[in-house]
Simulated assay, not measured.
Amino acid sequence: MSVTRRTVLIGGAVLALAGRAQAAITLSAALDAAAEERDPEKARALLAGFDPRDLPPVAALDLVTARAGLASDIAIRRAGQPGFDVLLERIFGPHRGAAAVERRLIRAQQEATRAALLLFDARGIDGATPGARFVRLWHESDGQFADSDAGRDAAIVAMNKALDRLRAMLPTLIGPVPGYCRDVSATRGSPEEQASGKVGARRLPLPGRPGAYVVDLARIADRPRCSLPSVVAHELLPGHMIQLPIEAAARPHTLRLSYAPGFAEGWGISAERLVARAGAWADDPRAQLGYLHWRLFRIARARADIGLHVHGWSIDEARARLVEWHGEPAYFAPFDSDLARIAREPAARTAEMLFALAIEDGTRGRRGRGRIAYHQALLVDGRMRSDEIARRART
Rank of each mutant, 00 (worst) to 15 (best):
G80C: 07
D361F: 00
D283V: 08
V157Y: 00
V3H: 13
L296P: 00
A320D: 15
L170T: 11
T4C: 14
A128M: 05
E247V: 04
R349H: 15
E36N: 12
R273C: 13
W267L: 01
R256D: 15
A68K: 11
A212R: 04
Y374A: 10
G370V: 02
A16I: 04
G268E: 09
T187A: 13
V214W: 01
R5E: 14
G208R: 01
R203Y: 07
V215K: 00
L55S: 06
I91F: 07
A280D: 14
R136M: 01
E89N: 10
I306W: 04
R107P: 00
T113N: 11
Q110E: 15
A333Q: 12
G97M: 09
L27V: 10
L379F: 10
Y259F: 15
P329H: 05
P252M: 10
R371S: 06
G200Q: 00
I269H: 01
H375Y: 12
G382S: 05
R319G: 10
R219N: 08
A108Q: 12
H326E: 14
D305S: 12
G83C: 02
G143S: 06
S314L: 12
R77L: 10
R202D: 11
V64S: 14
A43H: 04
E193A: 14
R295Y: 06
G124R: 01
A158E: 13
P178Y: 12
A276N: 13
E345P: 01
H253R: 09
R392Q: 14
G69I: 11
D126Y: 07
R273L: 12
C181I: 08
L357P: 02
R114P: 02
G365I: 11
L163R: 11
I74N: 06
L170E: 09
R219F: 00
G127E: 11
L378N: 05
C226L: 15
R152Y: 02
A249C: 05
Q243S: 09
G49L: 01
I306D: 05
G131T: 03
V275K: 02
Q243Y: 00
V3F: 09
L308V: 02
E328Q: 12
G262T: 05
G83K: 01
A233I: 03
A115K: 08
A300S: 14
A218L: 04
T172D: 15
P94Y: 00
A21C: 10
Y331Q: 02
T4W: 15
L137P: 08
